[in-house]
Design a protein around this nucleic acid. Structure first.
Length: 449
DNA sequence: GTTCTAATAT
DNA sequence: CATATTAGAA
């Protein structure tokens, strides 16, 4: 703890593992509780308050924000004059941590569901109706906040009849209707009492689709199920079964998606291969299964020359290799959802192929006839520009929830060590490389807590 | 008529 | 900025 207090910083590599998360949160909570009520630093005060209130309310907060690096210094110990000695590192981690606990809303999408004309014109419902179903009463400040933004949105929308725009998140995050298969048509959500505020009718106006995580996952899943070769907008649209989404929306998104797949992935892969070097951990060898079935998606002329992007030339999908890695290799036909479920134990922060995300919904095998190309969705959109900065880098919300809740509810748990061996090693290596070689042998390189 | 891509608009 | 829209080719 001393070291942390002195400004030790731990950098975590991106796919944040649950353990790391837990570690971090335990520190945060511990600090919030232990610093004497008087001495709680400004930065942690909100944390503590929040923790307390959360404990009382047994509220679960949902977040999908976590941090790659967490800085736990500048604790109250050096309250007065030492500030300049510890210029806060560029990353405002603590603030973010605060935010995590502080406002539970933190931009949880205002759950709206909308209905819109889907068939460009054959349809009868040529209007958009937006209802906000799930806005709990307006008690807490946070919620007020979200409502405010919502109201603002509405204001904008109403402001100009000709140019009203609203954000549609075709499916609320908390899917309750996950697999009620036939929900294509209908669904004018009954407007609840409280919805009066949220109700919007925008006649024949295009809605801007907010490609939320859920939505994108759906999209990806659809693409996977169709197989990359047959992933065309209309089919994707069908599979997604998202009301209010148009073919154009999907096409547009698909376009972007493909761009990312093409440009980012190959590079990423190259790098990964190169960096395999001394990695002490698993040496998964990416083996490329020979896929039967149609050759690559998209005629080859659109593809970069093989030498540049080796993975693209062959086998249905450039990701085919990813999901069949591993010592024994998974069956090719293994549905993507299966390895979404891969248990955490196998996870390492550096197990790059498989950021773990709990599936947003149970698998849908309705299209099982063709699963020609099951691809690693997560790997694909790992870098895919997502609604709010690649959240696929972060553990899923419920994971975070669990971790945070656990940390909060068990503040007495022993604090984990801040730095783990790998980090310590690299630190020592770097130090010695800089000439600082007289590191006290200490206890095996661990930094005492 | 659909899809794909690129360019452009919002 | 992320999406939408459009154009033009396949």
């Amino acid at each position: 703890m001393k070291c942390i207090a002195l400004g030790a910083v731990e950098f975590l590599s991106k796919p944040l593992s649950e353990d790391k998360l837990r570690n971090i949160w335990q520190h945060v909570v511990h600090k919030a509780f232990n610093a004497g009520a008087s001495a709680v630093s400004e930065s942690l005060k909100p944390v503590k308050e929040s923790v307390v209130s959360i404990l009382q309310l047994q509220t679960e907060n949902t977040q999908h924000e976590s941090r790659a690096a967490v800085e736990l210094e500048k604790v109250s110990q050096f309250s007065d004059n030492d500030h300049e000695h510890y210029p806060a590192p560029s990353t405002p981690q603590l603030k973010q941590v605060e935010r995590l606990l502080d406002d539970g809303d933190c931009q949880e999408q205002t759950n709206c569901s909308t209905e819109k004309e889907s068939g460009e014109h054959d349809g009868e419902s040529k209007f958009v109706e937006t209802t906000c179903e799930n806005l709990n009463a307006e008690s807490t400040p946070q919620q007020n906040k979200s409502e405010v933004t919502l109201v603002q949105k509405e204001a904008e929308e109403f402001a100009d009849a000709s140019k009203c725009e609203s954000v549609v998140s075709p499916r609320p995050q908390n899917e309750k209707v996950l697999n009620n298969s036939e929900s294509n048509t209908m669904s004018v959500n009954k407007v609840g009492v409280r919805s009066h505020k949220c109700e919007i009718k925008a006649n024949r106006k295009k809605m801007k689709v907010d490609w939320t995580a859920e939505l994108h996952k759906k999209f990806v899943k659809a693409v996977e199920q169709l197989g990359i070769d047959h992933a065309i907008p209309s089919r994707i649209l069908d599979l997604m079964k998202v009301e209010g989404l148009t073919r154009h929306n999907v096409a547009s998104h698909l376009q972007k998606y493909r761009m990312h797949k093409r440009h980012i992935l190959p590079k990423q892969e190259d790098r990964k291969w190169l960096n395999q070097r001394d990695s002490t951990q698993r040496s998964y060898c990416i083996q490329r299964p020979i896929m039967p079935g149609p050759p690559s998606y998209y005629s080859n002329h659109t593809l970069p020359p093989p030498p540049l992007y080796p993975m693209w030339g062959q086998s249905g999908t450039q990701m085919a290799g990813m999901q069949a890695w591993g010592p024994s290799g998974y069956p090719l036909w293994q549905p993507a959802e299966t390895w979404h479920w891969q248990p955490f134990p196998a996870m390492h922060a550096d197990t790059w192929g498989t950021p773990v995300l709990p599936p947003p919904q149970p698998p849908c095998y309705s299209y099982s006839q063709n699963i020609p190309a099951v691809s690693n969705a997560n790997a694909v959109d790992y870098m895919f520009g997502m609604p709010h900065s690649s959240f696929d880098d972060y553990p899923a919300e419920d994971v975070i929830d669990n971790v945070v809740t656990e940390a909060i509810s068990k503040p007495w748990l022993p604090l984990p060590i801040g730095l783990n061996p790998p980090s310590t090693d690299s630190v020592l290596a770097e130090l010695s490389r800089q000439g600082i070689s007289n590191i006290p042998p200490s206890n095996n390189g661990y930094i005492p807590n």
